[in-house]
Design a protein around this nucleic acid. Structure first.
Lengths: 326, 326
DNA sequence: GACAGCGCTGCAACCCCTTGCATTAATTGC
DNA sequence: GCAATTAATGCAAGGGGTTGCAGCGCTGTC
């Protein structure tokens, strides 16, 4: 049995409140008493029970971070940045993965409530109204989605998509496909909306293919549709799909970028390792992770912020896009 | 303010214990009372406080899962398998990342204690004695390490490494490099020991290069040493390093596998997407995740298991290894 | 008619810790 | 030398739940 505060109190002959103060407000305890208590605690292997402490203080010093798919390399940089920022504030990050499932997501938020000081909800697949409801059960910061009245960190993907499409149009492509992501993704809707807006410029004709699972397999599976659509360039919802798409196109005998140009979004580390190297829209994921933690911890427990920050994206031109062939 | 059990009791005119039983033992409550309580709870938006519940029951229905580097694609399949297995037992998985840092690791285990029913410690970098000490503070299952007296799930990497080296020797390679992983990695030590044992067969001469960070960059950085070592084949600590190494060798003008054969360990999804596709030792990560969860939850709260399971690895021959050139 | 048994509910202790307030003793000021 | 501080500690009420036990009103048994 692990030692409790009572065991330490008994061993050192003081009241439990003195033991408590020895750890949470040492300056209120006589130096001699303090060292005696510490010695006993050490001896007994006593560790304050953080759950019990949180029950009364209302602070856990933990932050929940919920992502749609932990296998998507988009998330690790965000997670790592959130971790280091959290550590700076003496907090710990607990990550959970929803498997792109809105029900699991809801369940996880509820499971984390009261065990964390707040949840960073990244790329949620739930409805806005459900998210609003959950935000009444636990402080929430939403990442990759805008919901009025809730603090949010978004990346300017609409602009990023338009720049990418402009890049493709500038290379002479007149028929471009947009491969969208999963249903429920705010980002996917934003990209689609932006792309359709760009189409009205008249520089190219857009074919929308989706929704699709946002994975390598999802990209691979859509290759045939891309071929049939007769387009010469593709913008994919994310790099994973773009990479899968390149594989799929290769399997169909199409070369990238000679026959089809492919661009992704995210700039995951992997996009520098493929052949050809992937042209993509870089998302400031690390900055997003830091910002989300800051927003969660910024306001006191009293009033919550509802600020929304938008971070800039940047087109990285590599080798998977090229001029349209004659 | 979120509603507490007391608010619900007052609203429905029953004692808090009846409310409590409505949620945790419904069969003990009269159907009529139950539905009244439920209606009030619904109305007030009441959710049982899981932290408070855990304080008295001693069960959180959470499992901590600590990994050395969440950006390493080796872990997601393990995590996902653990999640689905946990879900089957009505538990949630909280993941934390140590950044390959033993101090962060220790801190995280302590942070999770009492907030989870146990911790799956994957690829720990701490000392055995510290792990043993921590296992007295929170139930632990260790993955990728053997520690006497502690439940563990390991993969038979020693055998896997020997099979891989045998494969390389069979292709005619007489000078082989082993690129090791980070200090503190049990797996790396196992592989090294196995390789040195194989060397005594006299079929090849081994050059050990390391320790190295177990990342793409780590692999890239060791390319020059590999070249200078004058070997014709390399076995890397993991696929990430193998992939980085291939990049690095290419940059030095060496072709894989014509000039140097490269084999990895892990069989991450990415190893199928590189050019050439990577020869590697497949680890049963999903099975490991499931087994670890099962071991943690198998024994009652009373006596802990100390069983250790070892899972089989398998060599996957792809295109990054070939016969030694003349 | 006394009593056991049953279904349901309330009572109160308990999980482990924090914290405002009261108490005590020692120090300071004048 | 006495009141007023000050420092150190104890007391007890929580925080939000769970759970063994007792008590209630009823029914059924002999």
């Amino acid at each position: 049995m692990p030692a409790t505060i009572r065991d330490v109190a008994q061993a050192s002959g003081v009241h439990i409140s003195t033991v408590s103060r020895t750890f949470s407000a040492p300056h209120l305890v006589n130096a001699e008493t303090r060292s005696r208590v510490q010695a006993c605690a050490e001896q007994l292997g006593y560790r304050p029970n953080r759950a019990a402490r949180a029950l009364i203080t209302g602070r856990t010093y933990n932050i929940g971070l919920i992502v749609a798919d932990i296998a998507n390399p988009f998330f690790p940089p965000l997670i790592k940045a959130a971790e280091s920022q959290a550590r700076r504030h003496d907090h710990h990050i607990f990550v959970a993965d929803t498997n792109e499932d809105a029900l699991v997501e809801e369940d996880l938020v509820r499971a984390m409530a009261k065990q964390v000081d707040g949840v960073l909800l990244c790329s949620p697949r739930m409805s806005n109204s459900l998210i609003e409801q959950l935000s009444r059960e636990v402080p929430l910061v939403v990442v990759n989605r805008r919901i009025v009245g809730l603090p949010a960190v978004v990346m300017d993907v609409a602009h990023g998509a338009q720049v990418a499409l402009g890049h493709l149009a500038g290379l002479g492509h007149r028929r471009i496909a947009l491969v969208t992501g999963p249903r429920g993704s705010w980002t996917s809707r934003e990209i689609r909306r932006a792309a359709q807006h760009s189409e009205r410029s008249g520089r190219f004709e857009l074919t929308v293919l989706g929704p699709n699972p946002p994975t390598v397999e999802g990209g691979q599976a859509v290759a045939e549709l891309v071929q049939r659509a007769g387009v010469t360039a593709v913008l994919a919802y994310n790099d994973l799909m773009a990479i899968g798409l390149m594989e799929g196109l290769n399997a169909l005998g199409l070369r990238v970028p000679e026959d089809v140009s492919v661009a992704g979004i995210d700039d995951i580390a992997l996009s520098r390792l493929t052949r050809p190297k992937l042209t993509t829209v870089a998302n400031p994921t690390a900055a997003a992770g830091r910002a989300a933690v800051d927003m969660l911890l910024a306001h006191g427990d009293d009033r919550r912020t509802t600020a929304q920050v938008s971070l800039h994206t940047e087109l990285i031109i590599r080798d998977s896009t090229g001029p349209v062939s004659a």
